[in-house]
Write a protein that binds this DNA or RNA. Structure first.
Lengths: 332, 332
DNA sequence: TTGAAAGCGCTAACAA
DNA sequence: TTGTTAGCGCTTTCAA
C-alpha cells in the first residue's frame, strides 16, 4: 500500500542502494541516474520511512527534552530555544513534562532511551543521585539546561547564579536599603540555596549587614505566593524596605501586595526580580530584573548537544552564559 | 553490544516470540515461563527498542503536535493539555512550532508523516486549502485544536467563538457603554473575523448600536500592541468607553495604556478580555474575561485523537466546549 | 558508479 | 502454551 524504496528502485530500474544514495545525498551517483530516480520519487510521491531508517542506521534524528512544565512561561522559553536550534540542525523534539517529580524523571529517561533518541536535554531544579547514576549509564549524550549537577561531570549550560544574585542584592544595597528580604522558591535546590541564597547572604555581609532569617521566605514560585509573602513580611516589626524575588511571578505578587497595602513601588518598597521574562514589562511599575536568559540557555544547550551527537570536539562542556541587570522602574 | 530480545530468549531458553509476548503483556504465557523471562530481562537490563517495534508493528506510540509558538503562554497551555492526556494513554509527543507560517506547517506535516507518528494534533489560526488537501491525504488521523477548518470535515475541538464574543460584548453593553472598541488579532483568520468579529457586530446591532469601523483595530496580539491601540483609540473624537480585547496580553496593554493616560479602570474605561490565562489575575484591576479553556481544548483534542487511533466509535467529531465569563474587576 | 545481500530488533501469522 | 519464520523499510558493507 505505502510506497517504499523498493518500489522506487523497480520503477527507476536501479537498485535500492542507489535510491538510498540519492535520498541521502550521497555524491557517488551519476547525475543522469540521480535525475531518473528523483523523477520517480516525485511521480510516486515516495516518502522515506524514518523509522526503518532509524532501525538500520541507529540514528533517529530526534532528541528528548525533559522539562518540569511547559505551561510555565519560564520553561516554555527554554523549550523554544531548544526547538529552534534543533530545527536548525534537523532534529525533532520529543517533549515531556516531569513536574519535577524524580520518579517521573527517571521513567521519562527510560522512555527516551527506549525510543532511541540521539540525545537528551534535561532540566530540573534538583538532580538526584539516582538520576545522575542513570545518566551516567546513558547510551546517548545528555546536557543539562539551567540545571546544576553536584558531580560536575555532566555537560551543562547555566549562568553564574551566585554572582547574579549578588549583583541583584547589591543593586538594592546601593539605594541604602538595610532590610532586604529574599523571597525564594524551594531552598532545597542547589541553585536556590548554594548559589542564589549564598549570593544574597554574601552581598549583605559585604555591606556589613547581618543576615536576618526572618527576612528570607521559602515558597512556591507563584504570583499568589509572592502576594502572600509580602503580607507576611510587611507585618513584622522593622519590615523590609526592599525585596529580592526569585522570579517574575513572585515579584509581581510582591508588588501588588505592596500596592494593595497602599505602598508605592519603588518609593516605599523596592523590588528586584530574577528572570526577566516578558511578564517583566507587563506590570506597573515595570520590573527591574536580573536577567536569566532562558531562551539562550535552551539554544546553547541544544547546540552543545549537537556537538556531542556528531562527536565534534567540545571546547567547554560546562558553559556559563553572561548575566546582567535590566533596569526598569521597580527599583529607584 | 546493546542487548536484544534475542539475547533474552537465549538466556531464558525460550523463543523470541515468547519474550515478545511477555514484554507485551500477552496472556498466553505460562506464569512460570513469564517469571523466568522477566527475571532474565531484569538481570540483563533488557530495554525494548521502540524503533524496531515501530517498524514491525507499524505503530510508534508517538503523536505529532504542531502549534504556532510554544513560548506563547496561550499555546503552552494547550500543549500541556495535549501532553497530559497523551501521557495518560502512553503516547509521546513530537512538538514543533510553526510560527503560523504555512510553508512550515506543510513541511512539518511531511516530517511527521515521515516519522510515522500515529496521529497529529494541529493548531493554527488559519488552515489554508493546501493544508487541508494535505490533511485529506494524511495516512494518520489529525485533529484540529482550537482551530476552524472551513471545509468542516476535520475532527476538531473548539468553543463557540461567536457566542462567546457576543456574550463578552453584551457584558459591556449591560453597563450602558455605547462606544465599544474591539482590539483584535489579525482579522484575516476565520475565528477572528467570521466568529468573534461577527459576535461583536451582532451584539452591537441587537443593542441598536451601529458598527463604527474606527473602533475596530486589527493588530498583533501582544502587550505592546494593546498599549498602542489604546493610545490610538483614545485620541479619536468620541473615544470608546469600553474595550473588547482579543486576548489577555492585549487587554493588559489596553489597561496600562489607560492608566498611563490617567484614566481609571473600570470607572473611566472598561475592558473585557478573551482568554483568561493566568495573566488575568496578574494585573490591577484583575481582568474580567471570557474564558477560552486552552488546556481543556488540548486535552479533549488528544482524547479524541486517541479514539481515532484506536479506531473506537466517535460520537461527535466536532466538539464544542462550553464557555463562560469570569467576572473580575476590569468591568464594572 | 552501481548492485547484491546481510542485517537493524522486533511483531505477527502460522504451525505445532 | 510455545516456536518458526517471514517480513517491516531502510542502510551499509563488499564486490563488481
Amino acid at each position: 500500500m505505502t510506497i517504499t524504496i523498493y518500489d522506487v528502485a523497480r520503477e527507476a530500474n536501479v537498485s535500492m542502494a542507489t535510491v538510498s544514495r540519492v535520498v541521502n545525498g550521497n555524491p557517488n551517483v551519476k547525475p543522469a541516474t540521480r535525475k531518473k530516480v528523483l523523477d520517480v520519487i516525485k511521480r510516486l510521491q515516495y516518502r522515506p520511512n524514518q523509522v526503518a531508517r532509524g532501525l538500520a542506521s541507529k540514528k533517529t534524528t530526534t532528541v528528548g527534552v525533559i522539562i518540569p512544565d511547559i505551561s510555565n512561561i519560564f520553561y516554555a522559553e527554554l523549550a523554544r530555544g531548544i526547538e529552534d536550534i534543533a530545527t536548525m540542525y534537523r532534529y525533532n523534539i520529543i517533549l515531556s513534562n516531569s513536574d519535577q517529580r524524580e520518579d517521573k524523571e527517571l521513567q521519562l529517561l527510560e522512555t527516551m532511551f527506549g525510543k532511541q533518541v540521539d540525545g537528551i536535554v534535561f532540566m530540573s531544579e534538583h538532580v538526584s543521585v539516582d538520576l545522575l547514576n542513570m545518566m551516567d549509564r546513558s547510551p546517548v549524550p545528555i546536557v543539562l539546561a539551567g540545571t546544576i549537577d553536584s558531580s560536575g561531570n555532566m555537560p551543562s549550560v547555566n549562568i553564574d547564579y551566585y554572582q547574579a544574585a549578588y549583583d541583584a542584592v547589591n543593586r538594592l544595597l546601593q539605594n541604602n536599603n538595610k532590610r532586604i528580604a529574599y523571597v525564594s522558591g524551594s531552598l532545597s535546590t542547589t541553585i536556590n540555596r548554594a548559589f542564589k541564597f549564598t549570593g544574597y547572604e554574601r552581598a549583605l555581609a559585604d555591606a556589613g549587614l547581618q543576615l536576618d532569617n526572618e527576612l528570607v521566605v521559602e515558597s512556591e514560585t507563584t504570583y499568589d505566593a509572592g502576594y502572600t509573602a509580602f503580607k507576611t513580611l510587611n507585618s513584622i516589626p522593622n519590615a523590609p524596605t526592599a525585596y529580592f524575588a526569585g522570579n517574575d511571578e513572585l515579584a509581581i505578587g510582591l508588588i501588588h501586595g505592596a500596592q494593595d497595602a497602599g505602598l508605592h513601588v519603588p518609593n516605599d518598597i523596592e523590588v528586584i526580580s530574577f528572570e526577566n521574562s516578558k511578564l517583566a514589562r507587563m506590570v506597573r511599575p515595570e520590573l527591574t530584573s536580573s536577567v536569566l536568559p532562558l531562551y539562550d540557555i535552551g539554544a546553547v544547550s541544544m547546540r552543545l548537544l549537537t556537538k556531542y551527537m556528531k562527536k565534534e570536539k567540545i571546547e567547554e562542556k560546562t558553559v556559563i552564559l553572561p548575566h546582567r541587570i535590566e533596569e526598569r522602574n521597580s527599583v529607584k
